[in-house]
Design a protein around this nucleic acid. Structure first.
Lengths: 141, 141
DNA sequence: GTGTCAGATTAGATATTATCTAAATAAGGA
DNA sequence: TCCTTATTTAGATAATATCTAATCTGACAC
């Protein structure tokens, strides 16, 4: 991952390339999982440059608004983030809340009639069940 | 809605029919929208029997666990609840966070190969965009 | 390189959402 | 009616997210 890949992502979205924003984006790009804001905040602050909590949240919001990053809300738990690079769906574990990527496939968009006056932006498909780890020791009825 | 519809729903799920739990379920069943836990708490407490915050959350969790109620997580906002009676998808407004029902249609489930050792329970399809209200005055580029 | 300023950062307070605690209560079966 | 166990309660606490207002800085024009 060239240093400038991150910088170019930011700039092509009209976002200033600040050290803190760079650090958030770089961390997410090198990540295969789906960290929470708190985890991102911690990771960034283990290294330099350091970043305040507010800045981390601000940057995540900016990155999401710019379409570079996606937030996955999980019931009763912290939201999780990943880069929107390659199209994929998500699997959320009922038990531990972990979010995993799932191979993408096309989903039919809703009929215009169903949509009415709403403005459609995207479909998101979420699979639910038990992740591999939580499956261990599980006995189906 | 006969009084006993609610009671029977609870009992057939092995849940005791307490006044507080009844009130939560009854409120959700007569509701067309997707109230937050706070809204449900308020609604129940405008009438008798009253219920504490903890009880409202406990009951919502029990109802979700029993499969009678579904929670929809919304990024950066309170979760929202509805009864799982008739199959439907959800539309979430990017701007105001409102959740609306959308006509249900079948979604292909993931291939066994993709699923691996995970245990699949369900698919959830979420549409995103602007709701009818937030569309007013909106100019698409 | 320097000046400029809109946008970014900061620490800490605050807001919002959800859960925990431990004692008191009540549902529903025997 | 009595018993057992699930449920309820008020208030404290935890977890998550945003706000404030002072300060700083990236990037552009020159």
């Amino acid at each position: 991952m060239g240093v400038d890949t991150v910088r170019r992502s930011l700039e092509s979205s009209g976002l200033r390339c600040t050290p803190q924003r760079y650090a958030v984006m770089a961390f997410l790009m090198e990540q295969t999982g789906h960290p929470t804001a708190a985890e991102i905040f911690e990771a960034v602050n283990r290294a330099d440059p350091r970043s305040s909590r507010a800045t981390t949240y601000n940057n995540l919001r900016d990155l999401v608004k710019a379409g570079l990053v996606r937030e996955v809300a999980v019931e009763g738990r912290a939201g999780r983030f990943d880069v929107t690079g390659m199209k994929h769906h998500h699997f959320i574990c009922d038990r531990c809340g972990k979010v995993e990527d799932m191979e993408w496939y096309d989903v039919p968009r809703p009929a215009a009639r169903t949509l009415g006056k709403r403005i459609f932006r995207e479909c998101e498909l979420i699979f639910r069940g038990l992740c591999t780890k939580c499956t261990r020791g599980h006995v189906s009825h």
